[in-house]
């Protein structure tokens, strides 16, 4: 599973990044962001695509585990 690093990127780049990655139609993705806005935006996007998301906080960053 690829881990994507979207820390420090402006809105909406983190969502563009996960959208591009998800074109491969895998069952699981992981993306790391550094703010709650990106966390919310990605969560909303992947749920709309029929995925589940679990968010965990790590050293001030947010790790989003996205699964089918």
């Amino acid at each position: 599973m690829n881990t994507l690093d979207a820390r420090g990127l402006s809105c909406p780049e983190p969502v563009v990044m996960i959208r591009k990655a998800m074109q491969s139609k895998e069952n699981a993705y992981r993306i790391v962001v550094d703010n709650t806005t990106a966390t919310e935006n990605i969560s909303r996007f992947v749920k709309n695509q029929g995925y589940n998301v679990v968010v965990t906080q790590e050293n001030g960053d947010y790790v989003l585990d996205i699964t089918k």
């Binding site: 809105c11 909406p12 563009v16 959208r19 806005t37 935006n41 909303r44 996007f45 709309n48």
Partner: peptide
Amino acid sequence: SRLCMVGGIRDLILFKD
């Protein structure tokens, strides 16, 4: 709420959000 006037139309076009 992250209210943004440009984000509204942008996200609708980009992500159908």
